[in-house]
Amino acid sequence: MQISGTFIEDTYAEAFTMRAARLVITAASERWATIAARSMTGFATSVIGCGCEAGLEGPAPERTPDGRPGVRVLAFARSSDVLEDQLMRRVGQCVMTSATTACFDDLPSEETVRVGSLLRFFGDGHQVSKVVDGALLSAGGGATPTSRERRFWRIPVMDGEFLVEDRFGVRKAVAGGNFLVLGRTPEVTLSAAERAAEAIRKVPGVILPFPGGIVRSGSKVGSKYKKLSASTNSPYCPTLRGSVKTALPDDVACVLEIVADGLTLEDVRRAMAAGIRAACGDGIARISAGNYGGKLGKHLVHLRPLLEGTTG
């Protein structure tokens, strides 16, 4: 199978079930909301070393809870407990500290984790809670009659108040959707990966947790060093071509990986399809994907059926 002269390998990406939360960060301007979001998601590229994977999903919906400009953030972790801990730390250290911000839950779910409920203690006893009753939320017709009440904490800070929601909804989600861009030169490969990242950013419900949406240090499971659970993806490192069993054709000089996390498997599939199509073109020899023999991840996304529009 080829797209725009690029060969699509008959392989699959292996993705994992994770727990996700979706946040809306608002501020006096979108610029400050974005500053807070970028700070919060800065060191959140991989659960391997960061505790969670997080990224800026895009602008907030037209009507934010407090009517101010805002952005959406997605965060993924291996369990709800870890996600609670990560959100508490990241919202507390990066959002609460950003001027004028407020932080709200944007993922209705039965399962929730504490965020404002933990951060409120920063108020040193001066924090105040406000509860918006489920009856009022459902009166507008925008929610079901069983709408749960929403509790917010007003934490006094030096520019006024930091408003944060008490609990955030958590859902099962899919992380680790990926594909590899195998190019003939580093320049053309980077350009193709950038096109892919740009295309994926338009897909709602998906984030690209790595810097610029692109990974150069893809990993394989395990290492010769016992204390490491992952190490460099040696079959795809061009400089190791002569010393390990390589997966690279002779004309490939550079490989970049795109990793996408989404709220649903369908979101991830849409993102991968959009990204692969955008990456294909001159100078890109082939598109492959990272997997672990199908033994680690629950979700297998086969590239060819994905791009043919059939279930893969």
Partner: peptide
């Protein structure tokens, strides 16, 4: 002050 929490209540009231 401008208090963001008020807007949450106002949004709910207007929606109702």
């Amino acid at each position: 002050f401008r208090l963001p929490f008020l807007e949450i209540f106002f949004e709910g009231l207007v929606a109702a």
